[in-house]
């Protein structure tokens, strides 16, 4: 459409904002995700900013298993994010439920509730692997935003 839309779309691709949601993980993947933001791994050099508000976010990082209660929170967060959006599931728990997948209050991986675009294996996933996951998510994000532009 207009020039402003194009500008916004480019800006979003160049500087994606992350929302991190802990969906019931053991903290291992969470602290590794946080470690990505700190000086030693510093994802901010790619323009990635961690935000607390789903309405500002482009990429949703989900760690941990989904249970009956946080399933609703996860869906609400996903729905509140603006299109296009990419979901990255981190860690064995986020991918399939991991070691807990047979526990009584566990639904399973994140993809049982919301569509997942990138899977980052590991228990916990290493910061490098998470960075890889974010890079893959960015590619996907580009594809999605292109597809959206053509759709219009």
């Amino acid at each position: 459409m207009g020039l402003i839309d194009k500008l916004i779309s480019t800006a979003r691709r160049r500087s994606p904002w992350l929302l991190h949601f802990d969906c019931g993980s053991c903290n291992g993947c969470d602290i590794e995700t946080l470690a990505c933001l700190t000086p030693v791994y510093d994802v901010e050099r790619f323009g990635v900013v961690n935000v607390g508000n789903p309405k500002h976010a482009d990429i949703l990082l989900v760690t941990g298993t989904v249970n009956l209660r946080n399933r609703e929170v996860l869906t609400v967060l996903f729905e509140q994010m603006p299109e296009p959006k990419v979901v990255v599931a981190i860690g064995a728990c986020g991918l399939s439920g991991g070691i807990f997948r047979e526990a009584p209050n566990v639904v399973g991986g994140v993809d049982k509730v919301i569509p997942v675009d990138v899977y980052v294996p590991g228990c916990p996933a290493r910061p490098e692997a998470i960075i890889d996951g974010v890079v893959l998510a960015l590619e996907k994000f580009r594809e999605k935003s292109k597809g959206k532009g053509e759709g219009k």
Binding site: V88, D111, D117, V118, Y119, V120, P121, G122, A125, R126, E128, A129, I130, D132, G133, L136, K140
Partner: peptide, 9 residues
């Protein structure tokens, strides 16, 4: 070497 991130199951 860690297992790389993938886009499909």
């Amino acid at each position: 070497q860690w297992r790389p991130a993938v886009r499909e199951r």
